[in-house]
Nucleic acid binder design. Structure first.
Length: 435
RNA sequence: UCCGGCAUAGCUCAGUUGGUUAGAGCAGUGGACUGUUAAUCCACGUGUCCGAGGUUCGAGUCCUCGUGCCGGAGCCA
């Protein structure tokens, strides 16, 4: 039996236990035997380490027991931590004792190749694999960096509600739900509430799930995704762009500092990612249209950029770029008109390089109540639903700006994944509600 | 919603111009091996060929419809 009061080690800190006898608790990642010696790859959630199980060390009975273990069986190992160059990771455990907690039978994910649909059906188990583990560790670092960034600049996290009565952006499809005999929608953005918070706290951010019932089947779309949305009082569009750029620089630095091993497992091209630490070029929509025309692409001023247009412009740069001042007609009602050109709004999008497209969308907000009322009517939205929002322009209206950053798209880009579905533990997409 | 592709063993796939008994690798089980790195070697098994209908002497293969999945467009983060 495994002894009580043993040093319990975690694989990520195994070097601190060099030469000591420790206990490790985990699952079998893989194992192979060669007569009287076995090699057990133990996965403890913090890492994977090789454990040597030799008949001479553990005895006849324990060795017979070891022979029974299968992939993803759970067990505890007691043994000495030793340096060994032959072991992946540089350290291995010379097993003195092992206790089996549970034997797995027919674990579906073998160490060979599988299709995405099969793996997604087994997502609850797929999370145990090295690659998925690394992606979610990077996701965690990105989220933590985001929160640290805002927290360290006096932003207050103020959560926005998930159930809402109003559509903030008329064009997008909403999930509808029955709310005590009234219709409620799942939030597609926390922004309008964020504006209320900014007037109360000066600098605000919210971070939560958002829902879009778009029937999108592309590598960039989920129906449920996480978005961080800062909103800043007394902030104009140029400063808004600065905040977004500084945030992304900060995130990249932190991932490079703390998640290098994970990026290596994902075979991420590091120098290419480091390009994102350069300043972000700022291009107006009109300049973007000219770039398309010079590139021989048929495009009319006033049309919205499609994915191919975004890609065409973004591919000219190694780092993310900021596109700003879009035609008012194609953007949301709350964006402020450019005083120098009423045809455009003070909105901005950040396009990630390497074909990842839009990761940030933001704007300076319209401060004039009459303009907002007009725009709400134009969009065919219900004025009553926005009455509380319009109060923000009745009681001390000030210039303010904000943006939303999609976490999954940032994770996909930083990890250089082919699809956003692997960036979230349990993706929700059209045709995917389980597990 | 629109356009294109795919569907064969638990998994990944092959399957010729339509031809008689549908195959491989991996995983699994048993055995050999004290330094393996997705170990190797020997032995053993598995099929609603996505579903329905049609053409044909004969369909995994051809046709029609349906279903599921994948990619893209639109929309967006």
């Amino acid at each position: 039996m495994v002894k009580e009061k043993m040093n319990i080690a975690r694989v990520n800190r195994i070097s601190e236990f060099d030469g000591q006898t420790v206990q490790l608790n985990g699952w079998v990642y893989n194992s192979r035997r060669s007569g009287k010696i076995g090699f057990l790859m133990l996965r403890d959630g913090f890492g994977i380490i090789q454990c040597i199980v030799a008949k001479n060390d553990v005895g006849e009975d324990k060795f017979e027991e070891f022979k029974k273990i299968t992939q993803e069986s759970s067990l505890s190992i007691v043994g000495e931590v030793v340096k060994n160059e032959r072991a992946p990771g540089g350290f291995e455990i010379i097993t003195a004792d092992l206790t089996i907690h549970h034997i797995s039978t027919d674990y579906p994910i073998s160490p060979k190749e599988h299709g995405t649909d099969f793996l997604m059906n087994n997502r609850h188990l797929w999370l145990r694999s090295k690659r998925q583990h690394s992606i979610l560790k990077v996701r965690h670092e990105i989220i933590k960096a985001t929160r640290d960034f805002f927290d360290s600049h006096d932003f207050t996290l103020v959560d926005s509600p998930i159930f809402t009565s109003n559509a903030a952006e008329g064009s997008t499809t909403l999930f509808s739900t029955d709310y005590f005999e009234e219709q409620a929608y799942l939030s597609q953005t926390g922004q309008l509430y964020g504006e209320a918070s900014a007037m109360a706290f000066g600098r605000h951010y919210n971070f939560g799930p958002t829902f879009r019932a778009e029937k999108s089947k592309t590598r960039r779309h989920l129906t449920e995704f996480w978005m961080v949305e800062p909103e800043i009082a007394f902030c104009e569009i140029e400063e808004d762009m600065e905040w977004a750029e500084r945030l992304i620089h900060f995130i990249i630095k932190r991932v490079l500092e703390n998640k290098r091993a994970e990026l290596d497992i994902l075979e991420r091209d590091i120098p290419q990612l480091e390009e994102a630490l350069k300043p972000f070029p700022r291009i107006s929509y009109t300049e973007g249209v000219n770039m398309l025309k010079e590139g021989g692409i048929d495009f009319e001023w006033g049309d919205d950029f499609g994915a191919p247009h975004e890609t065409f412009i973004a591919e000219k740069f190694e780092q993310p770029i900021i596109v700003h001042r879009f035609p008012a007609a194609i953007k949301a009602f709350y964006m402020k008109r450019d005083p120098e050109n009423e045809k455009v709004v003070l909105g901005m999008d950040i396009l990630a390089p390497e074909g990842y497209g839009e990761i940030v969308g933001g704007s300076e907000r319209e401060t004039r109540i009459d303009v907002l009322e007009e725009r709400i009517a134009e969009e065919g939205l219900n004025q009553e639903d926005f009455d509380w929002f319009l109060d923000l322009r009745r009681f001390g209206s000030v210039p303010h700006s904000g943006f939303g950053m999609g976490i999954e798209r940032v994770v996909a880009w930083i990890c250089k994944l082919p699809h956003v579905r692997e960036t979230i533990p349990f993706p929700r997409m059209m045709g995917r509600l389980r597990p």
